[in-house]
Write a protein that binds this DNA or RNA. Structure first.
Lengths: 238, 238
DNA sequence: AGACTTTTCTTGTATATACAAGTAGGGAAG
DNA sequence: CTTCCCTACTTGTATATACAAGAAAAGTCT
């Protein structure tokens, strides 16, 4: 499980940018110079720089070089796939997860459509309330295929579902399709969350896939509007 | 302005996927076979496949091959950088833009901070109301550096700002940082939009950059909550 | 038949080379 | 001094080769 060379070069350059060795608006050394100092070929350097570019760390300019972007603004991109726990840890908040429901059941027709399956199979239905700074902010409704994710317990759901799936079961989560909308809160939302007087709720629907392209999880994450924030870095595709 | 080879291969493969020649869950031909049929080297094929993977068209699996993903779900990713007009066109909606304000002014301290500039310079302040199906849904507040974007007129703002910037001025828009939050509507929101009884409004703040990494535009796009939708495809970076 | 090994396919990484395209600066010619 | 061109850099694209790593099928032994 040793990382590839261009990954390690990427990691090192990210480090230099985040700790300030490389400041915003500075030019990186040229690809040839980097190749020499890292004892790698230029193509390997280019793979590392491509990653930096995709993640918003640098901007490449043909004929000129690669300039370091101001990364202070991209505090924490919730874009991508991060678990609630990772996020809470990074922000240094007092976070708590309350598992209010965990049961195995046959897919409803609605779920069957979400999973795009011809026949209904069994899924775990997990309902969790996320508490930050003593306020119940988020309601997560997760549905996971029991055939792929066996042996769920309340304890696992309270700690980290993703850690269990990846580290214990050895599955590899690969990508997700997300949709953000705003809806009216349900009675359940009002009951389980500290909604104050808000009459809307932010809903993030996620379809999550493994590395063999099988969908194993569908999630509806319901957020109190004032505590919701989504940050995105997007390159113009042409 | 002729496209590169791997771009054309990418375009062709996207075409095959979108028109159904290549169906979901099918395996692509192997990289070597593709290289032969496109008369390209394997590395060039790999660049095209990497793009397909990043845009959610395929999933690569080491040792097995590349499987086509179900692209019907990714209807239109609002992620990325698309103008209101492009989006409205694609959805086939009757869209209309009303320019309610256009003036050149000195940066406020707030704007100066958004642009990260040491000294205040002049910016265009553009205020536009977007109407879809006879309802005023979106309020866009744009601020653009007059030094980079000269000669704005009401007519240009009513048609397409991006078309003017890219096609007339010859500038290249490269990337953007976006932040989505939910706020209380201002008096102006209530006045200019058909807000119904909603007491929240979705705010998308964008910092938009050119290909030389200079920021030239800051935008606050304010959406009525029931008409807001954001779709995202995210790969797990590891 | 079943379990194990080997072969043969796939994609992933790393390297070297060549040329194209874009930028910036220096120098010669006017 | 200004204009133009050439040169010396930069990144972008395309190719070829080699080997590693993973998966699946074929083959072999018990």
């Amino acid at each position: 499980m040793t990382k590839s060379k261009f990954q390690m070069i990427y990691d090192e350059l990210v480090g230099h940018i985040e700790n300030g060795d490389l400041k915003a608006n500075e030019l990186l050394p040229s690809e040839n110079e980097l190749a020499e100092s890292f004892k790698a070929s230029r193509e390997t350097i280019r793979k590392a720089l491509k990653l930096l570019s995709e993640h918003g760390y640098i901007q490449k300019m043909q004929g000129k070089g690669s300039v370091v972007l101001d990364v202070t603004k991209i505090n924490f991109p919730i874009s991508g796939l991060v678990s609630f726990r990772e996020l809470a840890d990074k922000m240094g908040k007092r976070a708590k997860t309350d598992v209010v429901g965990l049961e195995e059941q046959l897919m409803t027709p609605d779920m069957q459509e979400q999973f795009q399956m011809k026949e209904a199979t069994n899924v775990w239905s997990v309902k969790r309330v996320r508490e930050i700074d003593r306020e119940r902010i988020i309601l997560d409704n997760d549905y996971l295929l029991t055939s792929l994710v066996p042996g769920l317990t309340v304890d696992i759901c309270a700690r980290s579902l993703y850690a269990y799936i990846e580290q214990v079961l050895g599955l590899t989560i690969s990508f997700a399709k997300k949709e953000i909308t705003v809806e009216r809160p349900t009675e359940e939302d009002k009951e389980l969350l500290d909604l104050k007087e808000y009459d809307t709720i932010v809903v993030v629907k996620s379809h999550v896939y493994l590395d063999d392209a099988t969908m194993f999880q569908y999630t509806e994450s319901r957020h109190r509007p004032d505590k919701f924030r989504f940050v995105d870095f997007a390159r113009r595709t042409r």
